[in-house]
């Protein structure tokens, strides 16, 4: 059994009086693919955003690759080098070309020479199948292309864990497939640990090692995809699946 790379123990978070994460316990093993689903407002995005400190948890313990996540800038920066994130709204830097977007992190954070960073960038651009767009600006690309660039940008940092926060929710239907294909190929061709918040159940069935269902701030059910989709154990999960399957 490979070791635990991300661990959340009794993690709690409040927005004012609203208890958005309730006693979350989660252990993610190296190389594991986890899909997190649930109704909106269930805290799924908040949970993964806590892992790279885009949100701050108020109680409990979060550990990434042996480093405990506390209010220490050095530790946060160290963790962020190991954890990559893909956002729902891509968040590409509009004033830089695609290539510059990809080389920004490696040159300034990993302190690589520009030529090496560019080589890495082109390699990942080919992996996401848009090497010819390297010198365009994000504003000139379609949504699906932008999201693929965003995935490549995170990969260029060689993270150990990739977080996906509803990567296809903001895309037009015909572009969802191209992004999911990239994510599937990432899962199948590398040993990347992936935590993915998504509504795309087909993706979960194909790729996930575990499916986690959250509702109202807690992890209600977790299981392998076949069992989760086939025989949901809790009422809430059953209700949710009925609403999704169309």
């Amino acid at each position: 059994m490979s070791e635990v790379i991300v661990s959340l123990q009794k993690v709690n978070k409040w927005y004012g009086d609203f208890h958005v994460l309730q006693n979350i316990d989660l252990n993610v093993r190296r190389g594991e693919r986890i899909v997190i689903c649930g109704p909106s407002g269930s805290g799924k995005s908040t949970m993964i955003r806590c892992i790279n400190r885009l949100e701050e948890h108020q109680s409990g313990l979060i550990t990434v690759d042996g480093v405990e996540l506390i209010h220490d800038l050095k530790r946060i920066e160290a963790i962020r080098k190991e954890v990559g994130m893909v956002f729902q709204h891509f968040n590409l830097f509009p004033h830089l070309t695609v290539l510059e977007n990809l080389t920004l992190g490696p040159t300034w954070v990993l302190k690589k020479p520009l030529a090496e960073a560019q080589a890495i960038a082109m390699k990942y651009l080919e992996r996401v199948r848009i090497p010819d767009q390297a010198h365009k600006y994000p504003g000139q690309l379609s949504g699906g292309q932008q999201q693929r660039v965003a995935i490549a940008r995170s990969l260029c940092m060689s993270p150990k864990v990739m977080l996906f926060d509803e990567p296809t929710s903001a895309l037009d239907p015909e572009m969802v497939k191209e992004v999911l294909d990239v994510m599937v190929s990432l899962a199948e061709e590398t040993k990347m640990t992936m935590l993915c918040v998504t509504h795309e159940m087909g993706f979960a069935r194909k790729v996930a090692d575990r499916v986690i269902f959250m509702d109202r701030g807690e992890i209600v059910e977790e299981n392998v995809p076949e069992l989760f989709f086939g025989i949901p154990q809790t009422d809430r999960a059953r209700q949710f699946l009925n609403q999704i399957v169309h």
Binding site: L54, F87, N91, W108, V109
Partner: peptide, 30 residues
């Protein structure tokens, strides 16, 4: 400048000052 730009840049591991200089200010200038 949308908050997502801050988040994306910080996720890459850039410290606050670099985020300002490389990502936020060029966009804010416009």
């Amino acid at each position: 400048v949308s908050h997502g730009q801050w988040e994306a840049a910080q996720t890459l591991g850039l410290p606050r000052s670099r985020v300002l200089r490389l990502v936020i200010l060029p966009q804010a200038l416009r």
